[in-house]
């Protein structure tokens, strides 16, 4: 199981029993099956479509079952743009800076450590790798209080340093190291040994030979990490006590709790749409990496 690379997604490699083709019963069964499948697939999009529609409605209209807003209004969007704290561009900036930095640190530290665990021999490798795996099993919340106190002590819960606080907690995840290690294990040793023969050191081998080969795995880790951090709620909620530093999910959830906002659906749906759009774009363009990254983290089993 271990050696399988993140990208070895063999399309149609194994296909479970195929439906017999030809007889009428089977054709009808097939049609019904398709109808159910398409219906179910549409069900996946309905709530999102509804949020987009609602964001262009007025409050009284928002509770009616109409597909086309009557009247069509940008009021909800305007309200969201003027009343979100901090303002929307700031929320985007906060989410982006944290997600980008955390993605980069995970790529850098994850690939370095993944390579070391996959290829290099050193004392304590097994124990240290067990620690990496253990971090996947220890509930994050157990460390809420100690980590919070530590960050407090370091001053990382104040002002702009709160960014650093969140980044530090999320800087490198056991999953990133694990995924990249698996990928490096799947690269044939000969390639690396050839480089070593030519006199390249460990760092150069890693940097110039191995890392370029790991492109697909790095892409998968980057996408997963970016999505996870962009959407993350727990740590930003706790560390970012200063609302100027709020990320989109935190700002959004607090916006709903602000006075008179609880059921003001059009602006709430406008913010839901806005918070989802960046990931949606990412998903449309890099769908393959989403699917493969998650499949790869599942190959563990």
């Amino acid at each position: 199981m271990i050696g399988r690379a993140a990208t070895s997604n063999r399309k149609g490699g194994a296909v479970a029993a195929e439906l017999p083709v030809g007889d009428r019963g089977a054709i009808w069964r097939r049609r019904i099956a398709y109808a159910i499948l398409i219906g179910y697939a549409l069900l996946m999009f309905v709530p999102f479509a509804w949020s987009v529609i609602t964001s262009f409605k007025t409050l009284p209209d928002s509770v009616r079952l109409t597909i086309i807003p009557q009247p069509f209004t940008l009021g909800g969007w305007e309200y969201a743009f003027t009343n979100l704290t901090p303002p929307l561009p700031r929320l985007f900036f906060n989410s982006a800076i944290i997600a980008v930095v955390v993605t980069i640190t995970n790529l850098v530290f994850g690939s370095m450590a993944g390579y070391a665990f996959a290829r290099l021999r050193f004392r304590g490798r097994e124990v240290l790798f067990l620690i990496v795996l253990a971090t996947l099993m220890i509930p994050d919340q157990l460390r809420l209080i100690p980590v919070y106190l530590l960050l407090n002590f370091l001053g990382l819960t104040k002002g702009v340093l709160q960014y650093a606080g969140v980044m530090l907690i999320l800087a490198v995840s056991g999953t990133s190291i694990f995924l990249l290690r698996q990928y490096f294990l799947s690269i044939p040793r000969e390639i690396e040994e050839a480089a070593r023969m030519d006199g390249a050191g460990f760092f150069r081998t890693f940097w110039q030979v191995m890392l370029p080969l790991a492109g697909p795995a790095l892409a998968a880790v980057a996408i997963l990490q970016f999505q996870g951090t962009w959407n993350g709620y727990f740590w930003p909620l706790i560390i970012l006590q200063d609302q100027d530093q709020y990320t989109l999910p935190v700002g959004l959830s607090q916006f709903r709790l602000a006075g008179g906002m609880g059921t003001n659906w059009p602006p709430l749906m406008a913010t839901v749409v806005m918070a989802t759009i960046p990931i949606l774009i990412l998903y449309l363009f890099f769908q393959r990496y989403f699917v493969e990254g998650i499949a790869a983290s599942g190959v563990k089993g």
Partner: peptide
């Protein structure tokens, strides 16, 4: 904005 009491307590603790 949001849950004032909780937000304030996190501010106080930091």
């Amino acid at each position: 904005a949001g849950d004032y009491r909780t937000v304030m307590i996190t501010k106080i603790s930091s």
